[in-house]
Design a protein around this nucleic acid. Sequence first.
DNA 1: TCATCTAGACTACGGATGTAGTCGGAGGGC
DNA 2: GCCCTCCGACTACATCCGTAGTCTAGATGA
Lengths: 122, 122
Amino acid sequence: MIERISEAEQAVMEVLWRDSPLGATEVAERVDSSRGWSDRTVKTLLSRLLAKGVIAHQEEGRRYLYRPVIKREDYVAQESGKLIDRMFGGRVTPLVAHLAERDLLTPRDIEEIEALLRELKS
Amino acid sequence: MIERISEAEQAVMEVLWRDSPLGATEVAERVDSSRGWSDRTVKTLLSRLLAKGVIAHQEEGRRYLYRPVIKREDYVAQESGKLIDRMFGGRVTPLVAHLAERDLLTPRDIEEIEALLRELKS
DNA sequence: TCATCTAGACTACGGATGTAGTCGGAGGGC
DNA sequence: GCCCTCCGACTACATCCGTAGTCTAGATGA
């Protein structure tokens, strides 16, 4: 089980998943600027992620380069699973039914998903 | 936007969504017993939910009866939406694709979803 | 009427989270 | 060699969350 990653921490992970390894300052520069974080904040988040073991660092001269230890897909899978458990009793169909009912599925989505399922069966 | 409901708080909401209005003690009795909560804990959670405005209470003699103010579907929709935004950039197809890739879809799921989509199109 | 039992209100407290500030050491310019 | 700068390490602090404990006033039974 991957340790829980908070909202803020995930914003930092997204940067490293996109491109790594990176130094702390580089990460801070690339984090979604709409957050308005100081670079101290980003460094704190990097430390916490390190403590959680979801990223690792290696020395490069007098600074560290950070890189993810866990894969984004694995994290996404875990979080999706948790939502499906919590909200839909672990069944996927009710999730899709729910999305459909709430009109969260566009006709294009429906086409795409059908194509996807056809492929799965072949 | 519905106020954030924590994990523990949701366990209490589930009770009220299933049946309401209920007194605090009744809620405590019905909460998933595997949590092993004291009734104090449940009362605290009820107060917090009240403060968040997601439940309401009415007096009944010398106690309160609690009932949800928000609908479960709305809450589920919000949480699903947040996951889809955070993990899949707001697109639903990647979610389904992801579930498929991770073998989280059983053949039965696939059949059911296909049937659902056929219905949606008609 | 007096002790007792409840129910809700208020208080507690450690860990997680969001958001930084400060300190001390290694490099670099002069 | 000396001071400044940049980096990571450590510290801070309010708020939320999980999980209760205590206090107080009204209902109850003897």
